[in-house]
């Protein structure tokens, strides 16, 4: 199948130069986006109280993935955990679609944990925020030979809020492609898009972040931030942080820091007797721990730490 016949996902809202290859991700072996989502198990989640709802999906080859319909009428936390059998070899597809409508004044904390090892993982979240509602997203992506993460939010209700943090550690040829888009249409809306991670040997990462201020969203604010540690010479890091604006009364900002750890930090830690390998390990884990600190669910934290073989500490 030639590349032009493959489905295009994670599309940058405004295209740029083609030679940079960030305008979209190519999802090989499938012709259309609709085809990617065919055959998913449909699951509706409608929390009734603030107790976290946990959904575990184990990639055993029997089901391709899940199409979640989240009905948010109360403040809630939904934790979606994707793991793979240790004995599962060969690339499998794990596909997740998440649709949510967050009702007026409600808050949803959506947690996605990807520990799917050899899988090709694709999680696409599409949310609409009504007046004074909030979507907090925390994503930890450690597994997968290839992972595609997409988070689109329409902040259409006045004073609605989107706050997302994605943490990743890529090793041994892993590939991660992300696309986060906040469309501000309501007045006084806020978005904060953050990703932080580490690239080790032969890994590749593409990050797209877009804050889109649409005329009428007066008083809105949007921020994007990215921190990437590059720990090997054969890595590829691509970042495309967009700010689109058709409204005068807004504040948008972006900051990125890509490369080696800060020299002062390294010097300090070395002076405390730590070897450089240990320092890199600590700094890598710190990115994930920052994500875990947002998740109020011990079992999920343990799952992630066990995956990373981190010794659990008293909290």
């Amino acid at each position: 199948m030639n590349t032009s016949e493959n489905a295009k996902i994670n599309i940058l809202p405004v295209p740029t130069w083609n030679h940079l290859r960030v305008n979209e991700a190519v999802y090989e072996g499938v012709r259309t986006v609709e085809e990617i989502f065919e055959g998913l198990e449909k699951v509706e989640i409608s929390p009734t109280d603030e107790t976290p709802v946990v959904y575990d999906f184990k990639a055993d080859g029997s089901v391709k993935g899940v199409d979640f319909d989240l009905k948010i009428n109360t403040d809630s936390t939904i934790i979606l955990r994707f793991t793979a059998d240790d004995n599962l070899y060969g690339e499998r597809d794990v596909t997740v679609r998440i649709g949510s409508n967050i009702k007026e004044g409600r808050k949803l904390h959506l947690v996605i944990v990807n520990l799917t090892k050899n899988a090709r993982f694709y999680a696409a979240s599409d949310a609409v925020c009504e007046k004074e509602s909030a979507l907090t997203m925390t994503t930890v992506s450690l597994g997968s030979s290839k992972a595609y993460l997409e988070g689109k939010v329409k902040l259409q209700g006045e004073s609605s809020n989107f706050d997302t943090y994605t943490a990743y550690i890529l090793e041994k040829g892993q590939f991660l492609d992300m696309n986060y888009v906040a469309d501000h249409t309501g007045k006084n809306t806020e978005a904060n898009i953050v990703s932080a991670g580490v690239l080790n040997e032969k890994t590749q990462k593409v990050s797209r972040q877009t804050v889109n201020f649409i005329a009428g969203c007066a008083g809105s604010k949007g921020a994007e931030n990215e921190e990437v540690l590059l720990l090997d010479d054969d890595v590829i890091n691509k970042s495309a942080p967009l700010i689109l604006c058709t409204e005068e009364d807004v504040e948008g900002e972006h900051g990125a820091s890509i490369g080696q750890p800060d020299e002062d930090v390294i010097f300090y830690l070395k002076s405390r007797g730590l070897a450089i390998e240990k320092i890199y390990e600590m700094l890598s884990i710190a990115k994930v721990e920052a994500a875990l600190s947002r998740i109020d669910h011990q079992e999920t934290k343990k799952l992630v730490r066990d995956f990373l073989e981190i010794k659990e500490e008293e909290e």
Partner: peptide, 11 residues
Amino acid sequence: DTIPVMDIRTK
């Protein structure tokens, strides 16, 4: 609109 891209291939 602001459309920057960075492509970094060394640590």
